[in-house]
Simulated assay, not measured.
Amino acid sequence: MKNIFAKIATITATSAALSVAIAAGANNPAQAIDLNFNWQGNAGYSAIGSFSYDQATAPKIISESGSGTTNFLQSLNVSFLDPSKNLLGTYNTVSGGVSQSDFFVFNFDTSTQTLFDSIDIGGGTGAMGEYFFSGTGGDSLQLLQDIDQQGNSTILDQNSGYFNVAKVPEPASILGLLAFGMLGVGSTLKKKQASC
Rank of each mutant, 00 (worst) to 15 (best):
N71Q: 15
L88Q: 05
T136I: 15
I155D: 12
T12A: 07
N107S: 15
T12G: 02
S140C: 03
D54C: 08
Q150W: 09
Q100V: 14
L175W: 11
S50M: 07
T188S: 15
L189Y: 15
A24K: 14
G66H: 07
L87I: 13
S160L: 12
I62Y: 08
A166K: 12
I48M: 12
Q55P: 00
M1K: 10
T110F: 05
G68E: 02
N92S: 14
A56R: 01
I155A: 09
K190H: 07
A194G: 03
A166C: 02
D102Q: 15
G123D: 08
S50E: 11
D120H: 08
G129M: 01
M128A: 13
A6W: 13
Q193E: 14
K190D: 06
G89V: 12
L183Y: 03
V94Q: 06
S52Y: 15
D146T: 06
G123T: 05
I62F: 01
S173Y: 02
F103W: 14
N28A: 11
F104P: 12
I147K: 13
D146E: 05
W39T: 04
S19L: 05
N86F: 09
V165K: 07
A172S: 11
S46M: 12
G176D: 05
D139K: 02
S79L: 01
G151I: 00
M182P: 04
E64H: 10
T10E: 13
S140F: 15
A16E: 15
L87H: 14
K190E: 08
L175D: 09
P83A: 01
F37V: 02
L175T: 01
S153N: 04
S111Q: 14
G129W: 14
P169S: 07
A58D: 03
L143K: 11
L18A: 01
